[in-house]
Design a protein around this nucleic acid. Structure first.
Lengths: 344, 344
DNA sequence: TTTAGACATGACTACGTTGTCAGGAAATTC
DNA sequence: GAATTTCCTGACAACGTAGTCATGTCTAAA
């Protein structure tokens, strides 16, 4: 099986090289009959365009970069899967790029990556996507990108991006706890640099305020999206004179840490303290008890972001604008880690 | 900042295009002084070779594919990191390719991937790397590859590959349990399709046999590398008339499932039953108690495999053959989930 | 000194595609 | 029917690199 080129196709179809190129790239001004003739020849020969030649000549690269700095492998794997699915469909390659958001020259690193790997666009996961300073550098360098951003407010400093409504999801979780009769609900933060963290906090705030409950600062703990942070804050929590009846952790990993501490101290979840997480990680399904949490369809979100990016670069390849979903809202998943407050 | 080409470099260094090309590709027959002159010019201009042009001309692609079907995201992330590190160093791109090993036409899928994405080599993670049928198809199609294989026995059907000595590591874990006085040690298998599973079992066998202990079939449980499998088999285990004093699970996830069951039933680990896992996953550090396990440096292993693959394709780019490590042995990590048998 | 042979360099070309531009065919207007 | 305008097609060049081959320059043996 010898690789066939555009030349072979042209010969078989009885047209010129350029016309074949036009058909392949869906350029306008080709007669329908010609399109069909060429398409048939392409199929017959099993022709596949040579990426290298295409890239060289067009200066574009048909490869996207997926940029992330996120400690959660489950999240990353799903992101990759979502982006890959769309890339495959649209004939793009995908380069993964784990990196360190805390690094000083991270923006320059991305610019270099973009050039060196000859990418035609970047997909940014949080928190990179939420850093206006990074976005600014990308724009200044004419780099195509798309972000995944927590919150629904249109922030012109961050567009284009897809939005995830963490606030509403956190509101729903808190409402769930409230509906079970809990009024003393503690909150464990994740890193502030992840916009999802304040968003989730605001959702918690919204629900309490709606019920006329004043926030109790002693029940609110700074932290990070990690197991260790959950352990640390749970220990502090248990030192309070008046232990709350429920705890809402900004993600499942934090909740896992807290759960470990509670179990060690002989506290029963949910009877002694109700516990909710966020993200629907495998841990939340496997812990005992399984955690009440919020599910975000990371694969879908990443796919939508990728579609949006490609649409921005090659408008005519996207069938209809309607396909471009940019708003996502995680859904509440109720499991055994929450129960009515008088269930104690 | 305009992108500079090989032409600019040649002009600045006062040599021909071809000579610059020679320096870049480390071809022989270039005078040391010339190399330095050109290198200096390259640095001065911040020259980066144009991948597309290079690919087009050479017919090779300077892009590798990382192929895996593994449910463990932590493992995957480490694999990716190891492969990426080397790819960056050697100027290669990396395409990830998650797939389903159980699919019928998986070998053809890989062949198509190789052609369509214009890759120059594949890095195969287990279990793909251990499937002689897949390897055979790759060879027949002249596809460059490298595998990561459990076991030390040279299997000509699988080379080239790097080896991971799971058997010895499992032997060490079992020896550790034996040294603590345990003689009734149960074993939970992973999927048989992963060669690591029988290898780990053999290590367990080796250690028991060395002590003159006859294997007790009722203590050996088939299963999979999953939390659920651990739960299921732990439940069966506890129905035995004579519960063993120790349990060796083929990986940490299985151990996590077993631990959950033990904790629910009020059994204390390690006092009522000692528990060992394998892989040193984050869970093994975070569980209570933390698990005795074996650490495999997945990043290193993936890096070594990638180096081996590149060495096979472009022998002169590797400084010395000695760098090519192909044997890895996971190391024993003793934590609080194991204690002497009379500690009960 | 001569003469191989090994070493070192450069001119030229090809890789497969897309951009440019020119020109022909069809549709529309006068 | 002529003159536009719009649509459609092809010839040719060019992208930046590496392969081929010819040629020049050393070193060391005759």
């Amino acid at each position: 099986m010898v690789k066939s080129t555009i030349k072979d196709v042209a010969q078989l179809a009885g047209v010129s090289l350029k016309t074949v190129s036009r058909v392949i790239n869906k350029e306008p001004f080709v007669r329908q009959a010609t399109i069909e003739k060429v398409s048939k020849a392409i199929e017959e020969l099993g022709y596949q365009p040579n990426l290298a030649a295409r890239n060289l000549r067009s200066g574009k690269s048909y490869a996207l970069g997926l940029v992330y700095d996120n400690p959660n492998p489950y999240y990353i794997i799903d992101m990759q899967q979502g982006a890959l699915n769309v890339c495959r469909d649209m004939g793009y390659g995908l380069q993964i790029h784990p990196c360190d958001a805390a690094q000083d020259n991270i923006a320059e690193e991305l610019v270099d990556l973009y050039r060196d790997a000859d990418l035609s666009g970047l997909i940014l996961a949080p928190p990179m996507s939420e850093r206006a300073d990074i976005i600014k550098v990308l724009r200044r360098n004419d780099i195509q990108y798309v972000g995944i951003v927590s919150g629904t407010a249109e922030d012109p400093a961050l567009t284009p991006c897809v939005h995830v409504d963490d606030r509403k999801a956190a509101y729903n979780i808190t409402k769930h706890l409230l509906s079970l009769g809990h009024t003393h609900i503690a909150f464990f933060w994740g890193e502030e640099i992840h916009k999802s963290s304040p968003e989730r906090f605001h959702g918690y705030e919204d629900a309490l305020r709606e019920e006329g409950i004043t926030l109790d600062p002693s029940l609110i703990f700074d932290g990070a999206y990690s197991f260790e942070s959950g352990i640390e804050n749970a220990q502090k929590l248990l030192q309070l004179p008046d232990t709350p009846t429920a705890l809402f952790c900004s993600n499942d990993e934090i909740a896992a840490g807290a759960l470990t501490v509670f179990t060690e101290r002989g506290l029963q979840v949910p009877h002694d303290i109700a516990l909710a997480g966020f993200e629907n990680s495998p841990f939340s399904r496997h812990s005992s008890p399984p955690l009440t949490t919020a599910e975000q369809s990371t694969i879908e979100i990443a796919a939508a972001a990728t579609r949006l990016l490609i649409a921005g670069m090659r408008p005519h390849t996207i069938e209809s604008e309607n396909e471009l979903v940019t708003e996502f809202s995680p859904t509440l998943i109720i499991r055994q880690s929450t129960c009515p407050v008088d269930g104690r």
